[in-house]
Design a protein around this nucleic acid. Structure first.
Lengths: 208, 208
DNA sequence: GAGAAAAATCGACATAGTGTAGATTTTGTG
DNA sequence: CACAAAATCTACACTATGTCGATTTTTCTC
């Protein structure tokens, strides 16, 4: 992926032409992913979409997998920033509601890339690493909320940490499927997950 | 996949030679899947393992995907039978415990193929179909237990059906990851899932 | 058990996609 | 302007896929 320019900052704040291209490649990749899916998408397609030949593309990325890894990295960094920016909420109930709302947004916006990341986690170790880190972030957040709601801390099956991990997978998978259908399906899936999370936190409100 | 012989039953109960080969192919495929993974496994490898040439393999299956689909179908049919054979248990608590125990066994035994099925669900529609039917089976069973435990029936987010679907995905994903690690991890993941399921059913026993 | 039909197998070919290498052009800098 | 780094191209070598027609083996029938 074209070694990071070693610290040296160019006076001209203008980006090199290559930065443009690199972004164009990732954009094209994302578009093609939506259009024909990972398997069907060829390196030639991406290059063409970005306005260069295959040969030139290999100057930027060493393989199709690296391109997609770049795309996932870009998206996932965005997630991380966003998650860092989220103010910690004191009331567990509100925290859960906020988290779910944010998660819906994330999946509505980046569902495609997130699904791709999940699909390739197994085959592309780099992507697996990125996604597992993301999952850990989520699991940590869920754990915190559970503990604040009174669930005992610890890693035993009935304690916060283990439950949080299971809940994280539940949310991931539910959203993975729902985001393929429609925003409406996403909302419904989210509600179900939220309800289960609340129940686990011992906050199973009247209904809704 | 060599069209099913149209009804006509041979007097000789003996299988045709091809049935042997077909099984050998699937067995080899399973072995290679464990050994080098889906991507790395080539049609030539499979053929060689089964003692024939690529050309001959194409007589049985039209592509690598079809071979794997065959393998998934074989495994999944086994699951279905097994799930059909499970006696309905009256006590929800016992039913949940039994279901989890059975699920651990399934994943210990067929984890590899099940993970493969999940991974390819998106790219191979046939496999997606098989797996989604399997998930429906599980979801149905979970729904039944929840309802028997007093969770209101219906498809609203807080009702049995929607909750069951989320729980099903939770279990799938938790087991998917855990089965990659170790039988021990599988047990722990199972306990966490069981606890959440119990909690959702309103049966959050003292502790365990 | 001989012969015909069906099943199974082979080897050669055409195709498509990947990744590499060297030559060439573009761009920025002193 | 000249020179180095960046960016790009074309051509090639390699791998894997899937198809085809020819050939051999099995299986069935009488």
């Amino acid at each position: 992926m074209r070694g990071t320019p070693p610290a040296r900052r160019r006076r001209t704040a203008a980006e090199r032409k290559g930065d443009l291209r690199e972004r164009a490649i990732l954009d094209t990749c994302e578009a093609l992913l939506a259009e024909k899916g990972y398997e069907a998408m060829t390196v030639g397609d991406i290059a063409q979409g970005a306005g260069i030949t295959r040969g030139a593309l290999y100057f930027y990325f060493g393989s199709k997998q690296e391109v997609v890894t770049g795309l996932v990295a870009r998206t996932v960094e965005h997630l991380w920033e966003r998650s860092r920016a989220t103010a910690a909420n004191d009331d567990p109930r509100a925290a859960i509601a906020a988290a779910m709302r944010r998660t819906i947004e994330l999946w509505n916006e980046h569902g495609l890339v997130m699904r791709t990341a999940i699909d390739l986690s197994l085959t592309v170790p780099e992507i697996g690493e990125l996604w597992s880190r993301t999952a850990d972030l989520f699991t940590g957040a869920i754990t915190a909320v559970l503990e604040r709601a009174g669930v005992p801390a610890g890693t035993e099956p009935h304690q916060a940490s283990a439950m949080a991990r299971a809940l994280c997978w539940m949310i991931e998978r539910s959203f993975y499927h729902a985001s393929q259908e429609s925003p409406e399906a996403l909302r419904r899936a989210s509600s179900a997950c939220e309800h289960i999370w609340l129940t686990c936190a011992g906050l199973a409100g009247g209904d809704k």
